[in-house]
């Protein structure tokens, strides 16, 4: 409101209240001859030391500074604080989130590596197992084949032995018959059965 009044206007008002300043040669007195009339002897003090204005200034300062303090502490500062705290919390939260995610990643990677190692071990195990099983089966197979072959071999051998035995049996009969026939022809009379058989057996046993 008071900006409308020009500075020189204020000065004239001041002159009317306190008389001529007179403490500075820069202000020619004749400009304000009219106000000088009742000023005269009493000089206006240097404004900042003019104790007449102290009470008023203190009064208004108390009011306005009190208002400033109230507005600052109750309205303005809590707002700024809210903003700053909000941001600090947000940053804190983001950092915590980043830390958490990093821990999660580390965990995931660790578990991935563990799984990988497990899988590898499992693979090795399975491979060993399969290898073992296969070799065992092969062994079994071979053993079975061998035993079969052995059985067949045994059978063949007994057969051969039988054949040999029967063949040998036939040979005795033939030899007895032949010997009996030879003896009959040589002697002219049938050989005694028992003696021939004994002689054949004796020669066969030899």
């Amino acid at each position: 409101m008071f900006e409308k009044i020009g500075p020189s206007g204020l000065y004239v008002l001041a002159q009317a209240d306190h008389g001529a300043p007179g403490q500075s040669g820069a202000a020619p007195a004749e400009t304000h001859a009219g106000t000088e009339a009742h000023g005269g002897a009493h000089k206006a003090p240097f404004p900042p030391f003019n104790s007449e204005t102290f009470a008023g200034q203190l009064f208004w300062l108390a009011i306005f500074f009190g208002a400033l303090y109230l507005l600052m502490s109750k309205v303005a500062l809590p707002r700024v604080q809210n903003i700053l705290e909000g941001r600090a919390e947000r940053i804190e939260g983001d950092l915590a989130e980043a830390n958490r995610l990093k821990a999660e990643t580390d965990e995931a990677i660790a578990s991935y590596e563990k799984t990988l190692a497990d899988a590898r071990a499992e693979g090795h195990r399975i491979a060993a197992e399969v290898h073992e099983q296969v070799s065992k089966e092969a062994d079994e197979h071979r053993a079975r084949l061998e035993s079969e072959l052995n059985a067949k071999l045994d059978a063949s051998e007994t057969q051969i032995a039988d054949a040999k035995a029967s063949a040998l049996g036939n040979v005795r009969g033939i030899a007895v018959d032949a010997a009996s026939a030879i003896v009959e022809r040589l002697t002219g009379r049938p050989a005694e059965g028992g003696a021939v058989e004994q002689a054949v057996d004796a020669s066969l046993a030899r």
Binding site: M1, P7, Y11, S24, T31, P47, T53, A55, Q57, W60
Partner: peptide, 23 residues
């Protein structure tokens, strides 16, 4: 203009509303 040249004048206190000590 001459008055405005006074270097002290800028510190003068002038009542705007009311009068007396607490104006």
């Amino acid at each position: 203009m001459a008055a405005a040249n006074d270097p002290i004048h800028q510190f003068t206190i002038v009542p705007l509303i009311g009068d007396g000590a607490l104006a």
